[in-house]
Amino acid sequence: MPEIPHVALLVETSREYARGLLRGVARYQQEYGPWSIYFEPHGLDDPPPDWLSDWKGHGILARINSRETAEKILATGIPAVDVRGALPDLSIPFIGVDNRPVAQLGYEHLRNLGLRSFAFCGTPRGENPNQDNRCDWFVELVEQGGQACDVWLGAQSKQHAATWEEQQQDMARWLRNLPKPVGIMTCHDDRGQQLLDACRRANLSVPDEVAVISVDNDPYLCNICTPPLSSIDVNPSRIGFAAAELLGRMMQGEQPERQVTTLGPPRGIAARRSTEMLAIDDEDVAAALRYIREHATEGIRASQVVSRAAKAPSTLERRFKKTLGRTIKAEITRVKLSRARLLLTETEYPIATIAERAGFAEAKYFCEVFRKHHNATATEYRRRFRDE
């Protein structure tokens, strides 16, 4: 009988992203194990455990956040996979988030609110490459859209790190100087919570003056914010599963083809009150957009939306497209597909039921539209992105 692999998980449990990674590892282990798991709850910045130096296991999966931890893992000579990506020069393969579609999803969500001013709130450059990339992609998307993007990254070095109060005051000053209304994407939920606090200090209304979206979708942190924080779900379970899969191959002697592997796109947006606003001057367009978002899943048609215009219904379609860059019909389809994606990933409903609840008259037509927009069938999408 072959020996059961002994695998050490050096992953914290304090945030939803890391817990999602562990769920993915657990799913892989249940399907392809068994593994004997060495796991002790700890924090991201905790030193490596003392037992690691003499450990005689077969594989390590870790959120490596310090050079000390990296060196201790490398010294074991045991196959290892990093799921943090804080040290880009490591000779340990990394699996993580593809930050380009994450930034695109955040930008499009804010732009769809009718906003034309944007900013990014992140962490000091060099602190984490993933957060740097997230910022860079967001800025590029904003600039491609013809706008400038303000950026706040905080203190640039740990030697001169500001206190919490100093940092909050600096962030509040930055917020006061931004054009309003403004849509801000933050690098993660921790920064999003901090930004909302700074908005209160600056006497700025969220979301009316400042709409905020963050990344990681930690439900506990997002829902204790005032107001609750919209956030992008990057599907960490999928990343944990892929990391465990790679580690399994490495423990069998396979060498990874790439040092860095990014998985995407993200699962979607958990929209909460921090982005519940519409920054549209045209009252008819704003009313049409609000009506679509409230009733798209009821199977409404573009003609119904046009007929509700208080002034000049004959020009509403043209004004709508000029304001949002797409037709009324396209917006109805976009909202319906957004609902369908959520149902695919969070329910057991069959495809026909999902089509009906998303506002499509026929399941066959829904499947055709879904495949056209996502380059995958609804069933494939569910299998790929669902957090089982």
Rank of each mutant, 00 (worst) to 15 (best):
L229G: 00
A355N: 02
T163M: 05
S36C: 11
F320G: 00
Q168H: 11
N112W: 08
E143M: 06
E140P: 00
T353L: 09
L263F: 02
L195D: 05
Y381F: 09
P47T: 11
L22A: 07
R341V: 03
I300M: 03
L9M: 13
R15A: 08
A355C: 05
A162Q: 14
I269L: 13
P124N: 04
I95D: 04
I60T: 11
R273I: 07
D208H: 15
L337N: 00
A148Q: 15
M185W: 11
L105S: 04
K321C: 09
V139C: 02
D208C: 06
C367S: 15
G43S: 15
A310G: 04
M171K: 03
R382I: 01
Q30I: 07
S307E: 14
K329L: 11
D189K: 02
R23F: 11
F138C: 01
A287F: 08
D150Y: 10
K311I: 14
Q131N: 12
A286S: 10
S14W: 09
Y32T: 13
K329W: 07
N223S: 15
N203T: 12
P124T: 05
L246W: 11
P179H: 06
A355P: 00
L10H: 03
P2L: 10
W164S: 11
A161M: 13
T76K: 10
V215L: 08
P93F: 10
R258A: 12
L113P: 04
V25N: 10
R173H: 07
L196T: 05
R100N: 10
F94V: 07
E380L: 01
M277T: 15
N223G: 11
G183W: 08
R339L: 06
P313H: 10
A119F: 01
Y38R: 14
F138Q: 01
Y381T: 01
L316G: 09
A286M: 06
A202F: 01
E68I: 07
L44N: 09
G359P: 02
S214Q: 12
Q168V: 04
P41E: 07
L343Y: 04
D387C: 12
T186Q: 10
R201N: 13
R134H: 04
G145I: 03
I232A: 00
G24Y: 00
A172C: 08
L324K: 09
P265I: 00
H374G: 02
E245L: 05
A302Y: 00
A62G: 08
T13Y: 09
I239W: 00
L90C: 02
H295W: 08
H374A: 05
W51H: 10
C149V: 10
I224V: 14
T379C: 06
W35F: 15
K322C: 05
F360I: 00
S117F: 12
E294P: 03
V182C: 15
G183M: 06
A361E: 12
S230P: 08
A270S: 12
C187I: 12
S338V: 05
M171L: 15
C199F: 01
R318I: 13
P256K: 04
I328L: 07
D218K: 08
A363P: 03
M185S: 14
G359A: 02
G43Q: 15
W164H: 12
F138K: 03
Q167N: 13
A103N: 02
D46S: 15
T379S: 15
V151G: 02
E368F: 07
A211W: 01
R19C: 14
Q167T: 11
G59D: 05
S14H: 09
A302N: 01
A103R: 02
F366D: 03
